[in-house]
Write a protein that binds this DNA or RNA. Structure first.
Lengths: 239, 239
DNA sequence: CAGATGCGTTTAAGGTATATACAGTTCTTG
DNA sequence: CAAGAACTGTATATACCTTAAACGCATCTG
């Protein structure tokens, strides 16, 4: 079990970094891992991550499911390739003016943009430490580049990165959920529920009456970032 | 499809709130939704969420998989029951001294504790707007109770709640991953990778050399909370 | 005590990933 | 230039998963 996971990671890394020896003999391959990943991404964009099965992806090339296993060790690695695929290219923030704060803000907005363009990415990157490809590391590098000028200890920079990356995920999740139609049904049902049990949830009821869940045109990402970066600022320049 | 989802939500809500008419005729049921959920939680705690199948849960009662469908409409609802089960009881923060800041801090720590006790909860609550049970709403109510004294507009209280809840998830995820053994293999492999491509990721490399990924005994939750709440504080009492 | 009601089972359909064995094609090498 | 190695893609099979449908049977109510 442990060995299997280790091998999975190794295989995944090799694939993501294109470190594999090409065969010389035999027929030319008709596919590449990258092309397979692209097809899988298109499928996930259109029908969600659950719709991505080996068989459906293979069908996009008029092949049998098993044919994919010539190019990709398994589904885990396919998903890793999908992630890497939509993370290209990693952002270059060197042209952003205004110091660390505007740079990390830009990073967050770009990151959110990817999540919104590919809603399945949230599910795909939730959980587990997966193998990281060059583009994923590129995003990480860009974030550290943005935080470097804070002059904070590296460990704190790392923590701030985790905090900001998590915040982007939270906001993106919220917005993806909201875009996904059946949110209205949920709102109606949950709202009715709370009203019916108002006595059990007094503070929640009060907050709702005061408009806590009223749609708000302001960008939630900007709000969250403002809070967090204010907190970071206090760390950078103690009053 | 939309109708199915609506029905799913309805069924889930009814189940979570115990709003169903008990039959009078026929044999006594040998199970209850709550007992099934408990068994499923035990299974998930021991072997992970992926190990929770109708058949394995039923086996805990020496029943066939189909027997569960007498008590639970489907697996979706079972997972909702599992969530509700580990969220009991909702926290009561009224005894916490020290104003909104220590209350929301307490909320966050208690919340994190649940995630760490049941690592699968992260996966189970990721994604989708699911049906909410009384305990889940209890947590929400407690959070708003903690934030009320800030005097901030309700919409902002909501946003801050989302921010804090997300932050707890981020930190919990990090720690669950870390506790889960094979993190070491991941560190080794990823570290080697970055070293090998140091020129492509200069900032990342520099950060690592400066100890960005060195284990740190301080609680990451406290760090993250301190930043965010500092940011909120600035909003509450503008300098 | 009769009959309706609901429990739990069996069976089966339609998914999923993927191991293994095989047919056929193509390129390299003697 | 033939022979065979090496590769591609397929078919088959296993082992899971959720859940629909039909049925036997126990049990409680009237």
């Amino acid at each position: 079990m442990a060995k299997d996971k280790a091998r999975d990671l190794r295989a995944g890394v090799a694939l993501l970094w294109g470190e594999q020896d090409q065969p010389t003999r035999g027929p030319k391959p008709s596919l590449t891992p990258a092309r397979i990943a692209e097809a899988a991404v298109a499928l996930a964009d259109a029908e969600g991550l659950a719709a991505v099965s080996m068989s459906k992806v293979a069908a996009a090339f008029d092949l049998s499911a098993m044919a994919l296993y010539r190019y990709v060790p398994g589904k885990t690695e396919l998903v890793e390739l999908m992630i890497e695929s939509v993370l290209a290219p990693a952002p270059d923030l060197s042209a952003v003016a205004g110091g660390w704060r505007s740079r990390i803000t830009r990073w967050a907005h770009l990151s959110r943009q990817v999540y919104r363009a590919h809603p399945w990415l949230l599910a795909a990157t939730a959980l587990r430490r997966q193998a990281m490809g060059p583009h994923q590391l590129g995003w990480l590098d860009a974030a550290f580049a943005a935080l470097e000028p804070t002059g904070l200890p590296a460990a704190q920079q790392h923590r701030i990165f985790v905090l900001v990356a998590g915040l982007v995920r939270t906001v993106a999740q919220e917005q993806v959920d909201f875009d996904q139609q059946h949110d209205q049904e949920w709102n109606r049902l949950t709202g009715e529920l709370i009203t019916r049990h108002a006595d059990r949830f007094p503070h929640l009821t009060r907050a709702i009456d005061a408009g806590a869940f009223t749609p708000d045109p302001a960008d939630p990402l900007d709000f969250a970032l403002a809070r967090v970066l204010d907190g970071v600022q206090a760390l950078v320049a103690p009053a």
